[in-house]
Design a protein around this nucleic acid. Sequence first.
DNA 1: TGTTGAGCTCAAGTTAACTTGAGGAATTAG
DNA 2: CTAATTCCTCAAGTTAACTTGAGCTCAACA
Lengths: 158, 158
Amino acid sequence: MKKHLRLRPTGLTIGQIADRTGLAVSAIRYYEEQALVFPDRTDTGQRRYARSDIRRLSFVMITQGMGFSIAEIRAALQRLPESRTPNKADWENLSALFRKELDARITQMQALRDKLDGCIGCGCLSLTNCKLYNKDDRMQRRGQGPRFLLGDSPDSPA
Amino acid sequence: MKKHLRLRPTGLTIGQIADRTGLAVSAIRYYEEQALVFPDRTDTGQRRYARSDIRRLSFVMITQGMGFSIAEIRAALQRLPESRTPNKADWENLSALFRKELDARITQMQALRDKLDGCIGCGCLSLTNCKLYNKDDRMQRRGQGPRFLLGDSPDSPA
DNA sequence: TGTTGAGCTCAAGTTAACTTGAGGAATTAG
DNA sequence: CTAATTCCTCAAGTTAACTTGAGCTCAACA
């Protein structure tokens, strides 16, 4: 009693990916524009995603939630193998990278927090020689300024 | 040998404030628009700042460096006394507030980091039931979404 | 006194990360 | 087969936090 004999759905539609990840369809298209995912297309031009793209997009969401920019995430994702579907070990390697960065950020925030108390009422807020003003201490805002490790890591091609 | 008998400079010009804080003149004007500082004006319309505004702006820079938004910082600054120049204790109270928030953010980041390892390779990245996807865990981006404590603190007027 | 350098206002541009909308084609449900 | 969805592209809008530029006034100095 086969219905229409559709020989495999070829992949997931953008709507299905949106449902599975919780992302908006527009966001998923945007991520493609930003080179975070590379769905193929049907002959009529519709996007078709692999199951593994769910994981990929989830990773994007998680790391974004950690405060990383799309540029940083893209740079990281480029370390995944292109020729095959990334496996558990691949993802773990990538995660280790983010863990390191996260650790660094936490350390930085703790330092900032610890200095706040000592510094805020002491007069050095005039900035001339306030330790809080060592600009290395300041957290970065959105993707600008000296960037985090992830963009230009030691063993990336160039 | 008095020169011109200028009876007190009345306050600092915006350029002087820019020099002292390292902020751009345009940024200082913007902060006024955002109600972070309230300089008075000369009869010809030029801004004149009090010395204490240096500290105020420094505080803005520092807390921004910690990742707080202008809206959050404005809300916090509103707790300073309006009738008199804030003293050391005033600033310390304010700092305590930020310290708390910073602690909370650090804790949140640590939790996120700790879950990353356990979660990333385990299959739960399909998100259906991944702990990383408890949305309370995610760091907020720029001033949107559920906001941090500072906007609506328990003992603010309403 | 005159000419620079500072200031002023207001409008528009900038970046990140998306969303919204217009106008049209393809898929799916009944 | 037709109507309702879904999808597509491309342009423009959105928010935060500023910067840049035009056009003009004001202050400081020789």
